[in-house]
Design a protein around this nucleic acid. Structure first.
Length: 495
DNA sequence: CAGCAGGGGGCGT
DNA sequence: CGCCCCCTGCTGA
């Protein structure tokens, strides 16, 4: 120390820091990355993630976007929540039985202190050694796993989880929940997701998948497990928000805003956005409302947007260190241009993204005349497709049509390699994966994942046949069958 | 007949 | 632009 220099030490810095971090996470304030896992969405902080994991750090390094969405496919949700708890608070309780799995997940994500030795930063060594409140959280940990077990055996002093059952984060963002609520409505999809509800099924279901993958990874490398399948996406909505937030602060780095205690409570705009989060809290059970109001869909929709958003918002990593499992949109070049896109993953995703309840307002929809007659739609100008003879009065329709020619399919299924040009088609397609069959026949127990299928099915009840033979009483729904039939009459007439 | 995918019209925001 | 409406085509049981 130089003469006259005083060392000012904030005794409770560490505890306060951790507490505020956890609070910020709870309030989802300054969160700048969303981690999606098994249908849940966890808004967290890049800073924390990259601090605790080189793996995440790498991802963020290679992800220039403001608010990426990282989809973890090979990590159990409970494990992830536990790891978040661990990262934010330096400690987490975990049941003995889940320890192995958790460690695996930690290895996969290269969580410092759990799976990766956390070398003490040279410059910070003084700081690190100066606070030793949490014995479980001191730097250098040559045997993270073992230390982990010790930590597990005697409940630590941190945020003690009273329940010995699978660790759950203090507040696993229920508003982003893939749908723990409404089990009745999820009866079908539960088997698909293999999560929620019974915990043992959780272990058996998702875990099987995760373990398989982990096993695969471990075959390739023991010391450094291959990172899990991850998708990183830009959350358009959140990006917008953030841009607004940063508009006048000029803060480029979340560190500045997020760690600036002085600004925590002073920024009214941030307060406002946090208030939005508060609102979202109220809507958590609304996930399966047949027609969720816009606010209810806020976050899921945001992520949906991110997952299957327009080209301009897609930022796919082409980095070398990135996991092989990156799946993305097919041949789609973002506005940044020239990203190296990976083919969509074939692996079944272990997450639930857009299980959006489709509009279920069967019967009582618009009559055919409504849409065919077209109210005040066609106003003047006719737009001609440059690739074919198609014309339309709506530029919007032309744009959509042109996608057919360009082969652009911006919307990718997160469960399979299916891609499509339209979001609603994707949503219908995803029903196939989720097992959702929102369209029920009012006459029988039949239900379908596609509204069109139901509509056609209804004809068996209503007896409506679209094709009626003018020559005889024959009628059918099938055009080709009708044509075949009609040819008979033509032949007869010609003979 | 059901399942699935693709496509066009048009309304609401 | 998102979403809803509807139709059509192909396939398979």
């Amino acid at each position: 120390m130089a003469d006259g220099m005083l060392s000012l030490s904030w005794n409770n810095h560490r505890a306060t820091f951790c507490h505020i971090l956890a609070t910020l996470r709870e309030k989802e304030r300054y969160t700048d990355v969303t981690v999606a896992c098994e249908g849940k969405f966890y808004p967290v902080h890049k800073l924390v993630l990259s601090t605790c994991s080189e793996y995440f750090e790498k991802i963020f390094e290679n992800t220039p976007c403001k608010h990426p969405v990282i989809v973890l496919k090979d990590v159990n949700r409970c494990d992830l929540e536990a790891l978040f708890c661990y990262m934010y608070e330096g400690a987490v309780s975990v049941a003995q039985s889940n320890l192995g799995r958790l460690i695996k997940a930690a290895e996969v994500l290269r969580i410092k202190g759990l799976a990766v030795p956390d070398e003490p930063p040279i410059s910070d060594r003084r700081t690190a050694s100066s606070h030793h409140h949490h014995s479980s959280d001191d730097r250098s940990s040559p045997h993270p796993k073992r230390r982990r077990r010790e930590e597990n055996s005697h409940s630590h002093q941190g945020r003690s989880q009273s329940s010995p059952s699978p660790p759950s984060s203090p507040r696993p963002s229920p508003l982003h929940d893939g749908g723990d609520s409404h089990p009745a409505q999820r009866s079908r999809s539960d088997s698909q997701w293999g999560d929620h509800g019974a915990t043992d099924r959780e272990d058996g279901g998702m875990d099987g998948v995760a373990d398989d993958r982990l096993g695969d990874h471990s075959t390739t490398s023991h010391s450094a497990p291959t990172p899990p399948q991850v998708e990183v996406m830009v959350d358009e909505t959140l990006v917008k928000e953030e841009m607004i937030d940063q508009g006048d602060t000029g803060q480029e780095d979340m560190m500045d805003s997020g760690m600036d205690y002085g600004s925590v409570g002073s920024d009214s705009r941030l307060e406002g956005s946090a208030g939005g989060g508060g609102e979202e809290d109220h809507m958590l059970p609304g996930k399966y409302e047949p027609k969720a109001n816009p606010s209810q869909q806020a976050i899921p929709e945001a992520v949906v947007e991110a997952l299957a958003g327009p080209s301009g918002m897609q930022t796919w990593l082409g980095g070398g260190e990135m996991p092989s499992g990156f799946s993305g949109l097919e041949g789609y070049t973002g506005s940044e241009g020239g990203q190296d896109l990976h083919p969509p993953s074939q692996a079944p995703a272990a997450h639930q993204l857009m299980e959006r309840e489709n509009n279920c307002q069967w019967p009582g929809e618009r009559t055919r005349g409504d849409w065919q007659g077209g109210a005040g739609a066609s106003a003047g100008k006719v737009h001609q497709c440059p690739h074919c003879a198609y014309t339309t009065t709506l530029l919007h329709n032309l744009k959509r049509h042109i996608l057919k020619h360009t082969g652009e399919k911006p919307f990718a299924c997160s469960y399979c390699s299916y891609t499509t040009t339209r979001k609603e088609l994707l949503n219908e397609h995803i029903n196939l994966h989720t097992g959702e069959k929102p369209f029920s026949c009012p006459y029988c127990t039949y239900s379908s994942s596609h509204k069109n299928i139901l509509r056609r099915h209804m004809r068996v009840h209503t007896g409506v046949r679209r094709h009626m033979c003018p020559h005889c009483s024959f009628q059918t729904d099938n055009k080709s069958v009708f044509n075949t039939h009609f040819k008979i009459h033509i032949k007869e007439n010609s003979v």
